[in-house]
Design a protein around this nucleic acid. Structure first.
Lengths: 246, 246
DNA sequence: CGACATCTTGACTACAGTCAATACTAGTGG
DNA sequence: CCACTAGTATTGACTGTAGTCAAGATGTCG
């Protein structure tokens, strides 16, 4: 799905219909949402929101990848969220953006005007319930990420990131989780370093090292081939069952 | 409030009545909660839950401090949550505990049987709404924490932790945020190191260094005096406005 | 008082960061 | 088509911060 395909999309046709904040809504509720929604698009590299901006919408990512980052006054940057299609931006009952949001690929957002959306949360349990589920999932992901940042080595960090994306693509494409997987990494080295709490030099060195050891192959800058996902997993420091919870 | 004071407490008398997951409930709703709740107490050092345990309750911390930790197979530990009174344990619709939960002081929990609690979330918007607010707050805290883990120096990490606790005590005691603050740190050096993604030796060294520089005074192992909160803040790497969002 | 936990300090090491040079890639214009 | 540039990525040499290993100090409790 490209940017232009989303123009004038109805909720029923929406590619994230069953994963986004509206997933539990019935037809009536979708109609209310239609009234308060509008689409916005951003090009790769553009900033969607600056921390501190007044925010009069919340939004779902429809297509593309965006990042949430936090910046220290001396310029150090830490990514604190990686937003994929269906992920939610903004917080009900908060007027200010708290983090920078940047598009790393071309991005389409489905924006909801904030005030009416907040009212819907009060009146439409399905929205609130779904948002709670999604927020709990994000909290789980954040905690996994904290383990990575606090305790993993550089090599383990890189392996974990590739494994995460590889696994997601594998399940998305309904492929078996073992065997060869082609991974499209929508992040620059800088974005990766900000995700992992490393410098770009260390990211580069560890990618080269994993390549030298035959655990990955690099095709251009953004394409990675993982010949053996199990073998990569062994480098992440995790044991296998992670992430299969209900 | 001590452990024994909470025996047979009614919701109306509860010390966390207006901050916990039940904060928005009206009298009727509290009555339903009374039926499915029971108290449990744990001694300092006890494990409340093991990751992987079957979980048939969720709970609020009424008194004391507990930690959420994640463990790697080789023994590395990262704290991923610090649970203070009113914080929530467990996740609706999930049967397994995903992290270890340990009492660092004596702890009282107000436990709710999971099934009826999940039903209440469906039927009682006030519970779900409050849980959503609390989860969003936790997510914010987790992201702040990720910045600390990924990008701060050891000294900044220690300063940040003390500042966090100092600030909380100061606001709790309605004292001015500037000037001298006495802080009770309910964590061992080991727990601090797991919180900060450091070794205990580094924690110890940095505490000594902050002491040498006159930024803190140590009274016994757990009591810290901060003569000048502003000066400590300057060591955290943050700029002042952090944490004052709506 | 002695025994065990926890904490502090010191000496040394290693992993990731810094600084700098070079390589690669994509885009622009002659 | 190639030259030039700008941005991004890789590699090397060196440094510095936090980790490791070990000895001692302090505190707690029977």
């Amino acid at each position: 799905m490209t940017l232009d395909d989303t123009k004038g999309l109805t909720c029923e046709e929406c590619p994230i219909r069953f994963r986004a904040v509206c997933a539990k809504c019935d037809t009536d509720e979708l109609e209310t949402l239609e009234d308060i929604k509008y689409y916005r698009t951003f090009e790769a590299g553009q900033t969607i929101l600056w921390a501190g901006d007044k925010l009069d919408f919340v939004a779902s990512v429809v297509t593309g990848v965006a990042t949430l980052t936090q910046t220290m006054s001396d310029g150090r940057i830490q990514m604190v969220g990686l937003l994929l299609p269906s992920d939610f931006i903004g917080r009900p009952n908060r007027e200010m953006a708290t983090h920078n949001v940047e598009a790393t690929t071309d991005v389409t957002l489905c924006c909801f005007r904030r005030k009416p959306f907040e009212k819907m949360i009060q009146d439409t349990p399905h929205i609130g319930q779904r948002l709670l589920e999604m927020t709990l999932d994000e909290l789980d992901a954040a905690r996994e990420w904290m383990l990575l940042l606090g305790r993993k080595t550089a090599r383990e960090k890189i392996a974990s990131l590739i494994y995460l994306v590889a696994r997601r693509t594998a399940t998305l494409e309904m492929k078996s989780i073992s065997g060869e997987v082609h991974v499209e990494l929508p992040l620059t080295r800088e974005a990766m370093s900000n995700y992992l709490g490393l410098t770009i030099e260390t990211v580069s060195r560890q990618l080269s090292s994993l390549k030298r050891d035959g655990l990955i192959q690099l095709e251009g800058k953004r394409q990675i081939i993982v010949p053996d996902l199990e073998a990569l997993m062994a480098e992440t420091g995790d044991d296998d069952d992670g992430g299969m919870l209900i």
